[in-house]
Design a protein around this nucleic acid. Structure first.
Lengths: 212, 212
DNA sequence: CTGAGTTTTTATACACGTATAGAAAGTAGC
DNA sequence: GCTACTTTCTATACGTGTATAAAAACTCAG
């Protein structure tokens, strides 16, 4: 008997997610507040909490939706290259919505719609000759590195948008050249040096160091 | 003429930092709010903002204070081992106050009191035969990895304290064994597998992969 | 038709970080 | 003493995520 009892719902999870995506697309993730979202679906902020546990879960649902829509790249057969390619695809996917990093950090498995990436990485690592345990380690290490990389860029971007300077300037200003010769050597070029994308380099190093 | 004009200050930066450390020690970092801190120094929340730009800066000051008090370990001479040891020391230092990770993420140089770590790492990398640019890359890659690792653990711990479950369970519940054979193979052991500390393993891999 | 039970929605409220405006308390020149 | 100027502190307010309590809208048993 599929007869539902209780007050009939006015809004649904799917509706909420759709509205959230709309808001983000229109006004950026900064505009996505529970009250705004409520207005968008024609309800109140607290009503949303009956369909979604909290804002974190909402963001995770968005990631899910987003990740499911990304085309999976063709991966090379050679195990090491396969891991690298999968990691870079994952990196690119998460880079698409860097605001989820805060939510993701702890969840080393991402969302349901994004399990493709860990599956490929673990699988390729096993094919390279590792035990399952070792392969999981490899995945998690890559995962941590990836989160750190994207998280750093996300925060930096946020600061730039709010024109709130980094504390970096202050660090370099107080820098003692005697005590820190290497750092003062690069002090002037730091901005330029750290602007480069070194993710691929890092992943390759990890693969080289972790796979037989 | 060192005569100071204007209304004489009732509170000082040092006092604020000291009070903040006290609060954290007594009731944890979760209890450190601007209002609580104001009560602690006998002032109002907004008064604090005359001595500290925002809460981020306050946390950074705390890190500075904390990092300055940590003894620097003796490092091995061999460049590769030196990088590993310095990275692990840095990891341990930041692990001591994981709540700063949110602030740190973007600032790849940490605070003034913690410059010792990047200096050693860059220096050791140069000694290993890399150019300065390459050495900076190495440092930043290690930095990202470190932030990702600690950030993950910090968020996980926070969730545990709030008894808010991870979304992980849900992920494994919906897992399709056909589509994700590797992951479902380890599904039951995931908690156990991911509890292990793999930081050293990752750093060693990076060093092996990045240094000649 | 009535009352109990269930689910969803609404109203209200709290603590948070912090923006803004202005008051308070000092010094310097007259 | 008086007025300008400067620095610090206070009061008030906003928007945020979300806890709590109650109201509303439905089904079903009698």
């Amino acid at each position: 008997m599929p007869t539902r009892t209780g007050r009939p719902p006015k809004i649904s999870r799917a509706e909420i997610v759709a509205a959230a995506l709309r808001v983000i697309e229109e006004d950026g993730v900064g505009a996505l507040t529970m009250r705004r979202l409520a207005r968008e679906v024609g309800s109140t902020a607290m009503a949303i909490y009956h369909h979604v546990r909290d804002k974190e879960e909402l963001l995770l649902l968005l990631l899910d939706d987003y990740a499911a829509g990304i085309p999976r790249p063709e991966l090379p057969e050679e195990p090491r290259e396969r891991v690298v390619a999968a990691a870079m695809a994952m990196h690119e996917a998460v880079s698409g919505c860097p605001w989820v990093v805060d939510v993701l950090r702890a969840d080393d498995l991402m969302s349901v719609g994004a399990l493709w990436y860990p599956e490929r990485i673990v699988d390729a690592a096993v094919r390279a000759g590792l035990t399952t345990e070792e392969a999981v380690d490899v995945y998690r290490i890559i995962w941590h590195y990836t989160m750190g990389e994207i998280g750093g860029r996300a925060v930096a971007r946020r600061r730039r948008e709010e024109e709130r300077s980094t504390y970096r300037e202050r660090v370099f200003a107080e820098l003692d050249a005697e005590e820190f010769p290497r750092l003062s050597e690069v002090a002037g070029r730091w901005e330029e040096l750290t602007a480069r994308d070194t993710y691929a380099k890092g992943v390759r190093a990890l693969v080289k160091g972790l796979l037989p």
